[in-house]
Nucleic acid binder design. Structure first.
Length: 206
DNA sequence: CTAATGATGAACT
DNA sequence: GTTCATCATTAGG
């Protein structure tokens, strides 16, 4: 998969895109240094989805969800946490993919310091944990994740594809994707819209 | 299991 | 404009 193909998927289909993002790399450049991680868990939020922030239309908080595909939507929740989404669909449609867990690959010392947590398996295994580890806050809201010059951006791995079974970056063996219901929501709780890599030790929950 | 913590938005006046 | 329940969470017990 190349960047154009990812862009196309992000524009066309939020469920397919959530699977396509698995295996992609999230990069953040900050004064403290660069952090990177491999996306291992995602959730889709659809425009007609009861759990979607954009369900009731555009507000100051969710405005970036209505931007074009590849935009970052960062929101504040539970009084203390930030979560980051990859916006999908064309401008005007409020859909996005919540990044729920990554496998840290670079800047691990920085992440450990920010998180006050030495165990790498507990560094980024949750949507707010990975934001804290990578230094993502409202300052990153609205960034174009598909622009190679952005401080916060997505990188496409050579062997990721848009199918249920993707190739591993390291050994090129097929990696299984598990589909489940989403975590921590009440509305829309029965929909199968969460995806993670079956063999990853870095997901928030099995 | 529950507290911590604050923005949001719905439902009111 | 004000109130109040809710919330795509986490850490600690």
């Amino acid at each position: 998969m190349n960047k154009q193909q990812l862009k196309k998927v992000l524009r066309a289909n939020t469920i397919a895109a959530a699977k396509a993002l698995l295996g992609c790399t999230l990069v953040h450049d900050t004064p403290a240094g660069q952090t990177r991680g491999r996306i291992v868990e995602t959730e889709s939020y659809l425009h007609d989805d009861p759990a979607c922030h954009a369900l009731r239309g555009k507000t100051p908080r969710n405005a970036k969800m209505f931007e074009r595909e590849g935009t970052a939507y960062v929101y504040f929740t539970y009084g203390m946490h930030w979560c980051v989404n990859v916006v999908t669909r064309e401008r005007g449609v409020g859909e996005a993919i919540l990044i729920r867990a990554i496998e840290p690959t670079q800047g691990i010392k920085i992440m450990q310091k920010r998180r006050r947590q030495m165990d790498i398996h507990k560094l980024c295994n949750g949507p707010a944990k990975l934001c804290q580890a990578m230094g993502i806050t409202k300052s990153q809201n609205g960034i174009d994740l598909l622009n190679a010059k952005s401080p916060l951006r997505l990188q496409i791995n050579k062997f990721t594809s848009t199918t249920h079974v993707i190739s591993s970056q390291t050994n090129q063996e097929n990696q299984k994707i598990i589909t489940t219901t989403r975590i921590g929501i009440v509305k829309g709780a029965d929909l199968p819209l969460r995806f993670y890599l079956a063999n990853s030790k870095f997901v928030s929950r099995k």
